[in-house]
Computed example of a mutant assay.
Amino acid sequence: MSVAGKTAVVTGSNSGIGLGIARSFAAAGMKVVLNSYTDRKEDHALAEELAREHGTEVRYIAADLSDGEAARRLVSEAGSCDVLVNNAGIQHVAAIDEFPTDKWNAIIAINMSSAFHTTAVALPMMRAAGWGRVINIASAHGLTASPYKSAYVAAKHGVVGMTKVVALETAEEPITANAICPGYVMTPLVESQIPDTMRKYDMDRETAVRDVLLQRQPSKEFATTDQLGGTALFLCSDHAAQITGTTISVDGGWTAL
């Protein structure tokens, strides 16, 4: 089955992984709703650029996903939602006894609770359409842990668990729910961290990337946003119709350790 003409809502998609997935969807002829919490001219211009490039409908809808009602309105405003990609996320690093409560609450709200709210609105739309895909962008940290990332690890483990529940609740319907678990992905945010890492450890770029940023990624290569987009697009295909309730790691072997 072609996914052309299907409508996809991708949260947190004006850059990074979310934008990579949105580009893959648009290239396949899907209608795409981009999203972030900002409402800038460049956000809407990005949607217009993707629409022109791929000859499909692309819109930008601003929504602060730390607010559950705003997350629900995002999907409602989209009008239809055949494919929901819950990708929005933030990070903060600190020891548990020093972790700011407001940071904990924001990470749980944006990284995990928003996926509950968007899914609750999207599922009736998918049932009415007779087809649907829920794709949650979890993380290698949804399957394992690292110190100083308590909120992020808790949220991503929660996303994996919720994915399984959605899959079981829709198991007899033409709807699937899966979680993609990336390791380190080359995004503009990661790229911006490389110079600081080089200075901090007095290393050249190659060594800083290999020995610091990719220390836990056995392949010693970043995943790319195109690869994440291709994985998400596969999950929308008929080939993936019996893949549900599982995690797909795109982590260069991280969780094989």
Rank of each mutant, 00 (worst) to 15 (best):
A167T: 01
I61G: 03
A78K: 01
L143H: 07
V166Q: 03
A171D: 06
K156L: 04
M162W: 06
N111D: 14
L143V: 12
A167W: 01
A129W: 14
A122P: 02
A62N: 06
R73F: 10
S76C: 10
V58E: 00
P124A: 06
T119M: 08
G158K: 11
W104S: 13
A145M: 13
L84N: 06
D67P: 05
A88M: 09
D82K: 03
H141P: 05
N87S: 13
I107G: 13
I135S: 00
A109Q: 06
F99I: 00
D97T: 15
H92E: 09
E98V: 03
V165I: 13
A171R: 01
T101G: 08
V83I: 12
T119N: 06
N136P: 05
S66R: 12
A88W: 00
A71M: 05
M125K: 10
V159N: 12
M126I: 11
A138F: 03
G68Q: 08
P124E: 05
A154Q: 05
I90H: 01
P124Q: 10
Q91D: 07
I135N: 00
S76N: 13
L74G: 09
A106V: 01
A88S: 10
G158T: 09
F116H: 03
V83L: 12
D64V: 05
R127Y: 10
A155M: 03
G142L: 02
I135R: 02
E77S: 05
R59K: 15
V159G: 15
V85Q: 03
M125C: 12
L168G: 04
I61S: 12
M126L: 03
Y60F: 12
N136Q: 08
S113Y: 12
V75Y: 00
A95H: 12
M112L: 13
F99W: 04
M126D: 05
A78H: 02
A171F: 05
V93D: 14
A128D: 14
I61L: 15
M126S: 10
A171S: 11
H117N: 07
Y148G: 12
N136W: 01
A122F: 00
W131Y: 04
T163Q: 06
S66C: 07
S66E: 15
G132T: 11
A120F: 05
Q91K: 09
A109C: 03
A122M: 00
A70T: 05
F116A: 06
G130Q: 09
V58Y: 06
A145D: 09
S139P: 02
I135Y: 02
N87I: 09
A78L: 06
G142I: 04
I96H: 01
G79E: 08
S146N: 15
T118H: 02
M162I: 03
A115H: 03
Y152H: 13
S139T: 06
H117L: 09
A120H: 12
I135Q: 00
A88Y: 08
A106E: 12
S146P: 01
T170E: 04
E98M: 09
F99M: 04
I110H: 10
Y148D: 15
A129P: 07
G158C: 07
A138T: 11
S76R: 15
